[in-house]
Design a protein around this nucleic acid. Structure first.
Lengths: 209, 209
DNA sequence: ATGGGTTTGGAACGATCGTTCTATAGTATC
DNA sequence: GATACTATAGAACGATCGTTCCAAACCCAT
């Protein structure tokens, strides 16, 4: 059969296969990808797929976890590391809005999953819930850091704004998945700025987009 | 067979059957409802189902249209008729947040559809796109009416704010579908108020929630 | 050279999918 | 009362679903 590897090690890279599976679920949704599709497009054998990743739902959960750690958590961590607290928040929206059409149209796997699963997979639901909470906490932490650095109107309700930012972010992802031209999403960025500036503060301390 | 009706008239009500089909799709998604489910839960015969509503996707599109006209357009029209322009906008968010758990958890069929369908059904995609646009226009119209009634800071970017409100609304529906306790959604209402109040206007002309 | 352990290829499983088809029940018209 | 027409009931279709199973291929250890 000519595999050219040790019989106890797989002849495919675990994470790269998982990444491709994640991509397929991202594009077509859980129910839109069949096991036959996975076997074909991952270039991995049916038996290997089951022996390494378990059932379809198991595989999906693993793909979802991987998405969460790399595309969400990793992304947010990068933003927080690279930018000011206020700018890191603005970057979240800016990067989604500025993403190339193909990427933007995928939306967010976590959001897509929420709306596709009708309480069927408790693990997925819990994962998504936790991811949303974590994103909200990201916003809240950045706002707190901004406040401490005097970059934020002290009158701002940090927790409340963090929730609204989360909702704006999720809504942006929905709009991106619908076939909206990018320029119709752009105005959201300015409204984020207004919220960050505070209700009654006409400050110029925040740089332009 | 004892049907007790004229052979040329159906023995079920078209719209009430369509409503129940819509409800099923709303709860479980397009792919989550099989034709067998529909036959069983609608109490209508398989053949009747096909002869009156066509194929599954046809039925879904009809259910989607019905949802759009009754639950979205009709709802928004009611709000606009019953309230001040500004209040009608606030009511949109207030009613979603205040809806009973069971209703809130359904989210919005149009939003759910967006994320479930990966460009598979062009009709559904077009419908959703149009519905989102119409909702955005609702916000914009109310804002314009508010401006004409001097209830709105003239400096506000009406079109931009309408887009942001749409995103906030969609995000709220996503959060509602995830298993969030209602009090975690509530803060969004205050942020909507802040946006409606304008970036640099500390007015008290807007009533409390 | 042989045997153990593991991946691989691909057939095959029952269940369910959306859809079609045939036979029957029922009421009008002629 | 025979005929035409339509809704109903339910069997049946092929296709595809997720999953399981088995034999062949492979490399190491002995």
């Amino acid at each position: 059969m000519e595999t050219g590897h040790m019989p106890w090690e797989k002849n495919f890279d675990h994470n790269s296969v998982l990444d491709r599976a994640m991509m397929l679920f991202w594009e077509r949704g859980y129910r839109g990808v069949s096991m036959a599709d996975l076997v074909e497009e991952l270039g991995i054998n049916r038996s290997s797929l089951y022996s390494t990743f378990g059932q379809k739902e198991d595989l999906f959960v693993q793909a979802l976890v991987r998405y969460d750690t790399t595309h969400r958590q990793g992304w947010l961590d990068d933003l927080a590391r690279r930018s000011d607290p206020v700018d890191s928040i603005r970057q979240v929206f800016a990067e989604v809005a500025a993403a190339p059409e193909a990427t933007r149209r995928l939306g967010c796997l976590l959001v897509n999953t929420t709306l596709e699963f009708p309480a069927k997979s408790p693990r997925s639901a819990a994962l998504v819930r936790q991811a949303f909470l974590s994103t909200q906490q990201f916003f809240e932490e950045q706002l707190l850091r901004a406040r401490q650095a005097d970059q934020l109107d002290p009158a701002i309700d940090v927790a409340g704004l963090a929730t609204a930012l989360l909702a704006l972010f999720l809504g942006m992802r929905v709009l991106a998945r619908a076939e909206r031209p990018p320029e119709t999403i752009q105005p959201i960025l300015r409204q984020v700025d207004i919220l960050l500036r505070g209700a009654d503060l006409g400050t110029g301390s925040i740089a332009e987009w």
